[in-house]
Design a binder for these strands. Structure first.
Lengths: 110, 110
DNA sequence: CAGCATACCCTACATTGTAGAGTTCACGCC
DNA sequence: GGCGTGAACTCTACAATGTAGGGTATGCTG
C-alpha cells in the first residue's frame, strides 16, 4: 500500500493492542476485535498483520514465560513502539480532518 | 481486503466526494485529498479506486456536458449512492468504537 | 500550430487483507 | 499413557486494495 501509511486493519490491530495494554497478545487481540468491531478475524489475517507491523517497527513483541495457569503455547505479548503510537496519532488526525463537516451532509444523501 | 469493509483510501475518496458535493470529480477529489489529508495522490491510484467504488455501487458517476469555461476533458461528476453513505456511517461507527478510550492511553507510550 | 493546463484512462506491480488448515503445548480424564 | 480439548501461534496460497507513472483527449492562448 502506501508504505508510509498503515492500512485499515493494521490500525485496528494497533488500537486493540493499546486498549488491552499489558494483556495484549494474538489471541486476546482477536477476541477484542471481534467484540469491538463486530468483525470476526481469522488467525491468519491477524498474525500476518502482527508480523508485518513488527517488521515496520510499529509493534514490538516479547515472549511470555511458561504458561501462566491455563494450558496452551507461551504467549507472545504485544506492545506499541513510539513509532507505532506516532503513526496512530497521525492516522487519527488525518481522519479527523477528513471527517470534519461530513456528518451533517451524510444525512442528506438518499 | 474485506469485501464487506471498504479500505482506507476508498473511505477517503468517499469523504472527499461528500465534502465537495456538486463539485466532485476526479481532479477536484485529488486536490481536496492533497489539501486535507496532506497526502499526494497519483491520478492512477485515484481513478482505479473511483472505478472500483462505482462497481461496488458505493459511488455513481454522471458525465458532465461540454467543458464549462476552462479547457479540458468533460468532467465525470461523482456522487455517493445510499449504499455508499451507509457504508461511510458504518465505517465511522466502527472507528468510533475502536478509538474510544485510546486517546488517553496513547499519551503514555514512550 | 505549439505550448500549456485541465481532466481522465490504462497497465503493471506492490502492499495489505484473508481463509483455512496445520502445529504445539498443557491439562484432565479414563 | 494414549486421547480429547482448548489456547495459542505458524504457514501457505490467494484475493482485494493501493500506487506509480506514462498516455490520451480537449480547449485555451499566443
Amino acid at each position: 500500500m502506501s508504505g508510509e501509511f498503515p492500512g485499515e486493519f493494521e490500525v485496528m490491530v494497533m488500537l486493540a493492542v493499546v486498549r488491552l495494554g499489558d494483556d495484549a497478545y494474538g489471541w486476546s487481540v482477536a477476541q477484542e476485535l471481534e467484540r469491538v468491531a463486530g468483525r470476526a478475524v481469522s488467525s491468519g489475517a491477524l498474525y500476518t498483520t502482527i508480523n508485518r507491523l513488527e517488521q515496520k517497527g510499529l509493534l514490538r513483541t516479547r515472549q511470555g514465560e511458561g504458561t501462566e495457569d491455563r494450558g496452551g503455547r507461551p504467549r507472545r505479548y504485544l506492545a506499541l513502539t513510539p513509532a507505532g503510537a506516532e503513526s496512530l496519532r497521525r492516522a487519527r488526525d488525518a481522519m479527523k480532518r477528513l471527517w470534519a463537516g461530513v456528518n451533517a451532509k451524510l444525512g442528506e444523501v438518499r
